[in-house]
């Protein structure tokens, strides 16, 4: 059975000693993210996000299906996470590890339960036809802080996605190809982002943002805070670990809000850039003007 390498005693001691001296191994300040990169794919709804060496691919897809019996007015929205042996040999296919379960729960709570996507708008004919939107999250390489990167990837992929336009006339549902009508974006309500703090020291008195994998191995606890830029908390998860002072946690939340605003502005800018890139010859503007009528 493959075994993950645990950090040696020397590494543990050194990382902690460095943190006590306000130093991180890659020279970052405690509350700074690694360089964040976001690349949209050729298709709508495909995005690759990287935080330093952590790399995540998210792809959104949609298909027509029948709504659940107990929720006839809602469309279906699922987020599937996958940590494959590509990430590290210790991850096996079809056997979710604790990391994967917690990651998928966090994304679920942050994006789905907070109502970021309007699922009612996905329903086309009550109880008969609805869109099923699915985001697949693939972790390509794991160097710490999966949650924040995955959350950014999911939100970016969903906001970038366009589903085929449809119309209903006399009970007849028509789905248009992209050639007939420009695909339409999903009905998006707010953009939540995750910010994960890692705690160090006997009392958890040192807090770090965006820990790398080697830093994550040494931490005594972590807290993931999800918010949108309006200051609404969508989810907080400090799942055990060394107890941390309540006031320090509130402080972390305030810093998280600043970071979330940064993420939000970053994503808006990237989306605008991408829209500009695709809008060659003003064709899209022309088409959307037609649709407005």
């Amino acid at each position: 059975m493959p075994r993950e390498a645990e950090p040696s005693l020397n590494e543990r001691q050194f990382v902690l000693q460095a943190l006590r001296e306000n130093l991180r191994l890659d020279g970052r300040p405690f509350d700074k993210y690694r360089p964040v990169e976001l690349i949209f794919g050729e298709q709508y709804g495909v995005v690759e996000v990287s935080f330093g060496k952590t790399k995540i691919l998210a792809k959104t897809s949609a298909e027509l299906t029948v709504p659940y019996v107990d929720r006839p007015l809602d469309g279906i929205f699922t987020i599937a996470t996958e940590l494959s042996p590509m990430t590290a040999p210790s991850f096996e296919v079809n056997r979710p590890t604790e990391t994967e379960v917690l990651l998928s729960r966090l994304l679920e709570k942050t994006v789905r339960r907070s109502g970021a996507l309007d699922t009612e708008s996905l329903c086309l004919v009550a109880g008969q036809k609805c869109w099923s939107v699915r985001v697949d999250v693939h972790v390509l390489s794991h160097d710490g802080d999966l949650t924040d990167a995955a959350c950014l990837a999911v939100v970016a992929a969903l906001r970038h996605f366009r589903k085929p336009d449809t119309s209903i006339e006399g009970g007849l549902l028509t789905v248009y190809t992209p050639a007939e009508r420009e695909p339409v974006p999903l009905s998006w309500l707010h953009s939540p982002f995750c910010v994960t703090w890692s705690f160090y020291g006997d009392q958890g008195e040192m807090a770090l943002l965006d820990a790398t994998l080697s830093e994550e191995h040494v931490r005594v606890g972590s807290c993931t805070i999800s918010m949108n830029r309006h200051g609404e908390i969508c989810q907080i998860a400090k799942l055990g670990g060394t107890p941390v002072d309540a006031v320090a946690l509130l402080q972390c939340t305030n810093v998280a809000l600043v970071k979330v605003k940064d993420f939000s502005a970053f994503l808006d800018r990237k989306l605008a850039e991408d829209a500009k890139r695709r809008d060659k010859g003003g064709l899209m503007a022309e088409l959307s003007a037609e649709n407005d009528r």
Binding site: G231, I233, A237, K238, G241, P243, A246, L250, T253, N254
Partner: peptide, 27 residues
């Protein structure tokens, strides 16, 4: 929390809430 200290071991929030409400709820 750990005993009667102010140190928080677990903090789980699963619903949407304004950040300004957090302090009161936590206290």
């Amino acid at each position: 929390t750990l005993g009667s200290s102010d140190r928080v071991a677990v903090l789980v929030c699963e619903s949407r809430v304004q950040v300004s409400r957090l302090e009161g709820m936590l206290a």
